[in-house]
Amino acid sequence: MNARSIQRFVWSIIRGMIVISICFVILRPVLTKFVSSFMTEWDIWDQTVRWVPRSFTLDNYRAMFEFMRYPQAAWNSLVFSFSIAAAQLVSCTIVGYGFARFRFRGSSLLFGLVIFTLLVPPQIIVLPLYLNFRYFTLWGLLPEPGLDLIGSWWPFVLMALSATGLKNGLFIYIMRQFFRNMPKSLEEAAYIDGAGPFRTFLTVMLPGAVPALVIVFLFAFVWQWNDYFFTSIFMRDGTMLAHTLDIAAESYAHAMGTTLTGQYISLLNNTGMLMFIAPLLLLYAVMQRYFVESVERTGIIG
């Protein structure tokens, strides 16, 4: 045993402790929800109970399953997030390709504007946007007072298709970087074989960009699932999981005809939150490599 190997051994122990404690800090909110979801109110008052409930119960799950309208709301969220993410993927990929491969006047200015959309907080534009969708005249083409699009999917579809949805600037950036790093000879070969620019894009470039497409889609899906800022404003009586989670404990109390203690509401809410993130955790477990290696795979750094 020389000094160096002892030093290495000590460091590996310290490192292990640090990594484990950081992991614990990160996992704690999930653990909190998990243990709370099996507790009854008695467990909260019981001073000996902290992490392991004494009277194990599934009642919280039963209540939240019903009052979050879980199967329906989860399905709604799934279909909605999937569709919007797909629309964002299409538009951001096309735009990103345009920035990566074609030189045109004003392209760097336009790309600067892409970054600018990322820097401006959505709070600034959400109110005018709301009014534009509430009295939608297709920017002056339809007669006043216009259509009421609030409550429909249209605001989200329009924003997704025009690459201005949630964090779409980032997706354009990712796709641009990825296409830029792909060898130019691929396209040149296709052009020589007589393929037009659109066929080249569809049959040569897109298949090569699958890693970046998966990453953009995953992020778009997760962020759309998690979004409550836009969905709470643009959908009046929302049927997405985030909406039903928000009011589930309240409607439970209403249905029971009683007022619940803050503690009991907390147990219900923690159960609900766990049910809200469960599909994402599942997705993450299956696709974790894509998430964790996303920056390397897309070559954002390069």
Binding site: S91, G98, F99, F104, A163
Partner: peptide
């Protein structure tokens, strides 16, 4: 090439 560039980035230009 310029025209194609404008065409491909058109969704964003409109959206912006």
């Amino acid at each position: 090439e310029e025209l194609l560039g404008y065409l491909f980035t058109l969704p964003f230009t409109l959206g912006f």
